[in-house]
């Protein structure tokens, strides 16, 4: 796919949000991913041109951040947190199980192009460990069985819902949200029991 004039004008819109054009670079690269599925050379060239940098400067930035992918990502990006707490609480066994299930490893994409797997670091959801993500939407309190069902549903294009967030869309769709374009999904539920644990305990204690 190529970067169209529409995308270029959206890139310029991102630039216009900032006092200095270069500040828009990270969102711009997210937008490139939303169009191309990863950060392509063309995407780097276009960003360089729009911001007034060399392609080397943009490559330097793109290669620093783990969210920017060098190869095409599958329809869905699936992350399994393997930082200490999640790993010990089941993240490691989830990882083993689904890599076996899919026959792929870290940073690899299933043959059907549906899923790219990644061992991810802490997602700031430790109260929901072990944590997985689908296209960076939270899949909290996972276990092996839930993970297997999740993978199977994703592969068969069944509806999957984030535990704190909307119905799962695609990696490209969410990249656009992250880039800073509204998707109308703000009202999807985002609060759960763990987030209310303290409030409930306080009310129980009568404070």
């Amino acid at each position: 796919m190529a970067i169209t004039e529409t995308t270029k004008s959206e890139l310029r819109e991102l630039i216009s949000r900032y006092p200095e054009p270069r500040s828009a670079l990270l969102p711009m690269l997210h937008l490139v991913q939303s169009v191309e599925g990863y950060v392509t050379q063309e995407g780097i060239d276009v960003c360089a041109q729009e911001v007034g940098l060399t392609t080397a400067e943009v490559s330097a930035v793109a290669s620093f951040y783990t969210m920017f992918k060098r190869y095409p990502v599958g329809k869905h990006h699936v992350g399994v947190c393997v930082n200490s707490l999640c790993a010990l609480k089941g993240g490691d066994s989830i990882w083993r199980r689904i890599t076996n299930e899919l026959g792929i490893g870290h940073d690899e994409t299933s043959a059907d192009g549906q899923i790219t797997l990644e061992r991810i670091e802490c997602q700031a959801a430790c109260t929901h460990a072990p944590v997985m993500t689908v296209n960076w939407e939270f899949m909290d309190d996972m276990d092996e069985a839930k993970a297997v069902t999740l993978i199977s549903n994703l592969r068969s294009n069944k509806e999957v819902k984030s535990t704190r967030g909307p119905k799962v869309r695609t990696f490209k769709d969410v990249s656009r949200t992250i880039a800073g374009f509204d998707d109308g999904l703000v009202d999807e539920p985002g609060i759960d029991e763990a987030m209310l644990a303290g409030l409930k305990a306080a009310k129980q204690a009568g404070s």
């Binding site: 050379q41 780097i44 060239d45 940098l53 060399t54 392609t55 080397a56 400067e57 943009v58 490559s59 330097a60 290669s63 620093f64 951040y65 783990t66």
Partner: peptide, 23 residues
């Protein structure tokens, strides 16, 4: 001439150029 840059991160950090252009 910022066409030579540090690429990647951490222990993989390395000097390099854009994929499509030399220094």
């Amino acid at each position: 001439d910022p066409t030579l840059e540090l690429l990647e991160r951490g222990a993989q950090q390395q000097v390099g150029t854009a994929d499509d252009r030399p220094f």
